[in-house]
Simulated assay, not measured.
Amino acid sequence: MAKWTLENLLGIDPQEFEILLSRLFSNMGYRTELTQYSRDRGVDIVIKIENFGLTHTWLVQAKRYSGSVGVKEVREYSSLRYRDRVDGVIIAATSSFTKEAMEEAAEHNLKLIDGNLLVEMLNYYLPDGCTEVVSAGKQTDKASEEIGGGAILKRGEMVLANQIVTIGNEKFTITLTNRNIFLKKESSGFFSKSSDIEERIEIKEILGIHTEPNRVILITGNKNLKMYPISSRRLSELVEIFQNLRPEYLKGEHLDLSSRNGTQLTILTNKRIIVSDISGEIQKEIIHKKIVGVELKGGFLKRDQLVVSDNSNAVTKHYLDVDNPILWKDMIEQCVRTL
């Protein structure tokens, strides 16, 4: 296994060096965000960590230098702490710092990471990174597109959560970013090799989530519907993140309501009603444009049932067993009226 060295780091171009630092801090438990390259106003990476409800924010400046970093650079970046009102500033360099630079940093709560310390950190937190990411001083295109399994974040992509979850009967590591969801199957034996990313789901592909007390069902796809029944000890954290990401996938088809009856899941989107099994196999599909009527049918001591009529060929009535059929009726009528 190749180890990180200063020579490796000096062979990476400045932009790739920033991406590498972002991945390093992400593996250390921070939420990271790369700023826009060449327009970063002195800030390359923003890192955040939460402890007991308190958020601590640091700015990171990357210096891929072969010569020492002097007091002028340190003094310049010390003002960022006050300008952006953050907890502190970190300068990570591939070289050393002058004595004057270290004294200046101590006065302004700047943390300095020199080349030797950076190499130690990379070999500890990214032990496979040198082999997977750097080859003859360059990164592959694939590595710059993905995270996990040897890949790294895109510029502006931030890790929101990283958990071991159960999907169906198998364990996966799920990594959520502000752009993608990555699934990596967990090894089941002592001698199993860690696998690469098995699936990437773009946030814009999400229709929504169906929530239950002990799991969520992630629903994705358009023509090819796919469902992921996810269980986790930190389920509430995942649900909160999915809800926060909702504005990102509201632009396309998205989930408005869902109701499960046994293995059957009925979902209402802004475009259609779908009845599917948990595997995602569509059993019934009703397009809003073809709906001509919605009514409730029931009786004494009998639960109301939702009846939706459409004119796909001839007028057909579809009986749907959903929770809160009155709410469903109102929502379907609203969807049809807004077409």
Rank of each mutant, 00 (worst) to 15 (best):
D84P: 04
V89I: 14
M121R: 03
V69A: 05
R83Q: 14
V60A: 01
L153F: 09
S95T: 14
G137I: 02
L160H: 05
V60W: 00
A161I: 05
N109I: 13
V74Y: 06
K138Q: 11
K138W: 15
L160Q: 10
Y125Q: 10
R85W: 11
L117M: 15
D87I: 10
E120G: 05
V133A: 12
W58C: 08
V89P: 02
D87Q: 15
E100V: 08
V86Q: 01
R81Q: 11
E132N: 12
G88V: 03
S95P: 15
A93T: 15
K72R: 10
V69R: 03
A62D: 02
V86T: 00
V60E: 05
V119F: 03
R155C: 05
E73T: 15
L110Q: 06
R64E: 03
K99Q: 09
K72V: 14
V74A: 07
G67W: 07
S135E: 13
R155S: 05
A93L: 12
A101T: 01
R83P: 01
A93C: 13
S144E: 04
D128K: 08
R155L: 08
G149R: 00
E73A: 14
L118Y: 11
V86P: 03
S79V: 15
S79R: 13
G137A: 13
L117P: 10
L59R: 00
L126N: 01
R64T: 04
E157V: 00
S78H: 02
N116I: 13
I164F: 07
Q61L: 14
Y77H: 11
T94E: 07
A62Y: 04
I152L: 09
K99W: 11
W58M: 07
T166L: 12
G129F: 06
R75S: 12
V69F: 02
A106K: 09
E107M: 14
L117Y: 08
V69I: 14
G156K: 04
A151T: 13
I113A: 02
L153W: 00
R64H: 14
S135D: 14
L80I: 14
L160W: 09
E157Y: 06
E76M: 12
L117N: 15
A62L: 07
A93F: 06
L122T: 04
T140Y: 12
E132S: 06
V89K: 05
I167K: 07
S78L: 01
S78Q: 10
R155Y: 03
D87A: 13
Q61F: 06
A101K: 01
N162T: 00
E107V: 07
D128I: 06
Y65C: 05
V165I: 12
Q139V: 12
G67F: 14
E157N: 08
E103P: 06
G148A: 03
K63M: 04
G67D: 13
L122H: 03
K72C: 04
